[in-house]
Computed example of a mutant assay.
Amino acid sequence: MEDSEFLVRPDPDDDRLFRVVDGVDQDGRRIEAPIINERPLTLYLNGRRIVTAVTIGDYPEYLAVGYLMNQAMLRPEDTLVSVEHDPEARAVRVVIDADRDLDAMMSKRTHTSGCALGTVYGDILERFADVPLDTQARFHTRWLYALSKKINTAPSLYLTTGAIHGCVLCEEDRPLVFMEDVGRHNAVDKIAGYMRLHGISPRGKSFYTTGRLTSEMVMKCVQMEIPVLVSRSGFTAWGVELAREAGLTLIGRAKGKRFLVLAGEDRLVWDADPAAADEEPARARRKGSRSDD
Rank of each mutant, 00 (worst) to 15 (best):
F6K: 04
F6H: 05
D11E: 12
D14C: 10
D14M: 05
D15M: 07
G28V: 07
R29Y: 11
E32T: 12
A33E: 13
L41C: 12
T55C: 14
T55L: 02
A64N: 07
G66C: 13
N70P: 13
V81M: 14
D86H: 13
P87K: 09
V95T: 13
A98W: 00
D101I: 01
D101W: 04
L102I: 11
K108S: 09
H111A: 14
T112S: 10
A116G: 00
R127C: 08
R127M: 07
D134W: 03
T135A: 15
F139L: 13
L144D: 00
S148C: 12
K149F: 11
I151D: 01
L157K: 04
Y158S: 02
T161S: 05
G162H: 05
G166N: 03
D173R: 07
P175K: 05
R184W: 06
N186E: 04
I191Q: 04
A192P: 01
G211P: 01
R212I: 06
M219S: 09
M219H: 01
V222L: 05
Q223Y: 00
Q223D: 02
R232L: 08
S233E: 10
E241H: 12
L242V: 12
A246G: 06
R253S: 05
F259L: 04
D266Q: 15
D266S: 12
A272G: 00
A276G: 02
E280H: 06
G288W: 11
S289F: 14
S291G: 14
S291H: 03
